[in-house]
């Protein structure tokens, strides 16, 4: 986890955005390692596939389309630093009341989790509790998440779809079969 903090600091300081893209991939892999240490194998699996694979590719794609060097700002902004330090101090003060890491008596382990762990094998079947909670107990949530992904993909299509360029080339009969562009 200390490695993660160091990587994050380097990310904040770096100006070459290609290095930033690669380093954020490294950051994701470190996060995946941390998840495995914390017994969340499903989450680690997802983070490794998403963060190190797709996110890096998308980031590089954006850099090709925009620019890869960040502009150097002459003056160091001091106000954001103060805001960030104050917020961080307040948050750390807040953690003083938190249950300790790995504490089995923490409130989170006493509400619905015991029921999932004890009953899901008999009620739903799959030995992987994460799957049965994801798909069965919390089906509505997952439906919502899938809809969000669908909407995001549709949004990217609207923003950068091919037909927008066809419209920009002032070729009216090509855009007839596509919905109207906002641009």
């Amino acid at each position: 986890m200390v490695f993660m903090a160091v990587t994050a600091f380097t990310l904040a300081r770096l100006r070459n955005l290609f290095a930033v893209a690669m380093l954020s991939g490294v950051f994701s892999l470190l996060a995946a390692v941390v998840y495995v240490v914390m017994d969340a194998v499903d989450v680690a699996f997802t983070e490794a596939a998403v963060g190190a694979g797709i996110a890096t590719v998308l980031m590089l794609g954006t850099l090709v389309l925009t620019t890869d060097v960040e502009k150097v700002h002459p003056k160091k902004p001091i106000a954001p630093l103060i805001v960030v330090t104050l917020t961080g101090a307040v948050l750390i003060y807040g953690t003083l009341d938190m249950p300790h890491y790995g504490d089995p008596n923490a409130p989170i382990h006493h509400h619905v989790a015991p029921r999932y762990i004890e009953k899901s094998g008999a009620e739903v079947g799959p030995p992987n509790i994460v799957t049965s909670v994801l798909a069965s107990y919390r089906g509505y949530d997952t439906l919502g998440e899938v809809t969000v992904i669908f909407t995001a993909a549709a949004g990217v299509l609207v923003l950068l779809g091919r037909w927008r360029r066809a419209a920009a080339a002032s070729n009216p009969h090509k855009t007839d079969d596509e919905p109207e562009a906002r641009s």
């Binding site: 499903d42 797709i54 992987n128 799957t131 049965s132």
Partner: peptide
Amino acid sequence: HGDFGPGGGFQAGVIFGSGFI
């Protein structure tokens, strides 16, 4: 195999997509 080990639709979708990418 997501019912038995780690895995499921989200991970499989991402891996399938990255294969195509």
